[in-house]
Simulated assay, not measured.
Amino acid sequence: MTNGDAHAPAQDEKGRQRPFLPLVTGISTLLDWSGRIVAAVCLGVTFATLLVNVILRYAFGSGIAWAYEIHAILLPWMVGGGIVIAAARGRNIAITLMPDMLPQGPRRILSLAINITILVISVSVLDASGPILKAAKFQTLSTLGIKQYWGYLSLFYAFAGMSVIAVVDIIRTIAGEDLHASDYETSSLS
């Protein structure tokens, strides 16, 4: 769980440079951008398709038949993109009461425990999704003719992204970065 605008410290207490931290943090940034692109493209295509369908239906009495099925592929990808964005920015659903009350040392230990738990859960979901992906290869959308597999791949994208971000956050925490530092002025969504 990262703070999206936090920057990795350039040096540790002994003054040594840690050039790997910007590279590791860049992985989260790259995943954040991939989630933005996925969510924006899915939202745009879904909106455009539904808008054209409504216009055609009212203007000509019939619309695009596959417009009612496109959401079965695009909506899971939009949600998956949102999950990756939230995880990369540290804006996923969280209760921060305990980290806010703890001093920095115990807060780091709590951060490690949280990110290890996220990693274990994400990898477990990836492992369990194998049979679902195999079964989805046999499910076809009737009008589009597209396999449901392409929609279910969003599950893999979201949880693989969360796994990678959890590893990045573990590395950043071990390197001394305080991912739960309270900066209410810049992180408040109100």
Rank of each mutant, 00 (worst) to 15 (best):
V24G: 05
I118H: 00
V41L: 15
D100E: 09
M98Q: 08
I70H: 00
G151K: 06
L126T: 05
I95D: 05
I93P: 00
D183W: 03
G130W: 10
T49P: 02
K134F: 07
A59C: 08
G176Q: 13
G61V: 11
V125D: 09
K137E: 08
F60H: 10
I64C: 04
I73C: 02
A48S: 13
A72K: 14
S142T: 14
F138N: 13
L30Y: 08
V24P: 03
A94Q: 12
S182C: 00
S182P: 00
A10Y: 05
D32L: 06
L50E: 14
G26W: 04
K14Q: 15
F47A: 15
P103R: 06
L153G: 01
V120G: 02
M1R: 02
A40H: 02
V38N: 01
F60K: 13
W150V: 04
I114E: 01
L141Q: 10
S190K: 14
W33V: 10
I170K: 00
I121H: 04
R89S: 05
L119A: 14
P103C: 06
L51A: 11
R172P: 00
W66C: 03
V54C: 06
L23M: 13
T117L: 11
I174G: 09
I83E: 00
S154D: 12
F47W: 09
I93M: 07
L102K: 05
